[in-house]
Simulated assay, not measured.
Amino acid sequence: MALSSRLFLCGRFGRFADAVLLINKQPTVPLTCRCYVAVSQRNQLQFKLDERTAHSSLDLFKKDTGVIYRMLGLDPSHVQDSPLRFRDWAVVFADSRVDSGCHYWEVTVKKSQEFRIGVAEASMSRDECIGTNSSSWVFSYMHSKWYAMTTNKQVPVSLVGKPDRVGLLLDFEAGKLSLVDPQISKVVHSLKTHFPSPICPAFALWDGEILTHSGLEVPSELK
């Protein structure tokens, strides 16, 4: 597929699962934040991935801290029905929401050439993909290049090479999400915005797997 068309689309997922999902789309159900775990007042976010939000092409592993992409995925009719689940896009949210403070977590990347990591409003529509709307802020990796992304607009990020591990630094009050090189504890690029409501760590994946590492202190070099 040409790069221009790939940049416009969120991505691909299970070939058979997506056809069924698009034909039998479920009605939108109002989402609330009551399903998420409240965050500690400390600046040390601890989370797992929330299976109830995971698209049927995504499998969670290692006690729900990692996610792997399955090309064919599961038959959507075999996945437990939930208004929190992403139906059209290979997205999963964390089980914790953030409404204050400064937090840091890392992601290990394994065999993935296309993924997105960042945050999104807990109440974001499950019919959209992270990075394509004003309710999500992500860093996208594809075609061996990084992009900062929101409202479907992409800004190139000068981080060269395929990542093995990256960090995310979130300052809720400042409205800032930063991509971090953990090897040197340096901010590579920052997204500036205003978070109008509680947000969750969010992940999208179209091959390979990623593993999350939460409960980390903010590195002293980044404070």
Results as ranks from 00 to 15, higher is better:
A2F: 13
R6Q: 08
L9E: 09
C10Y: 06
R12K: 11
G14D: 09
G14P: 02
F16Y: 15
F16M: 15
A19K: 14
V20L: 08
L21W: 13
N24Q: 11
N24F: 12
K25R: 13
Q26T: 15
P30K: 05
P30R: 08
T32E: 10
R34M: 10
Y36G: 01
V37G: 05
V39R: 05
Q44H: 09
L45Q: 05
Q46F: 11
K48Y: 11
D50Y: 15
E51Q: 12
S56D: 11
L60S: 03
F61E: 06
K63V: 11
T65E: 03
G66K: 05
Y69Q: 00
Y69K: 00
R70A: 00
L72N: 04
L72K: 06
G73W: 08
L74N: 09
L74D: 10
D75V: 07
H78P: 04
Q80I: 14
D81V: 13
D81Y: 09
W89A: 04
A90N: 10
A94S: 11
D95M: 04
S96V: 11
R97F: 15
S100H: 15
E106H: 11
E106M: 09
V107M: 00
E121P: 01
M124W: 05
S125N: 06
R126D: 08
D127R: 03
E128Y: 07
C129N: 00
T132D: 13
S136F: 03
S136I: 09
W137S: 00
S140D: 03
Y141I: 00
S144D: 04
A148I: 15
K153C: 10
Q154C: 04
V155I: 13
G161H: 09
R165A: 06
G167K: 00
G167L: 12
L169E: 03
G175W: 12
K176V: 15
S178F: 06
P182I: 10
H189E: 09
H189Q: 15
H189D: 09
K192L: 14
T193G: 08
H194S: 14
S197D: 03
P198H: 05
I199G: 07
I199K: 08
C200S: 07
F203L: 11
F203K: 02
A204E: 04
D207H: 00
D207A: 12
G208Q: 02
G208C: 05
L211M: 06
L211I: 08
L211A: 08
G215K: 04
L216F: 05
V218A: 01
L222R: 10
K223V: 13
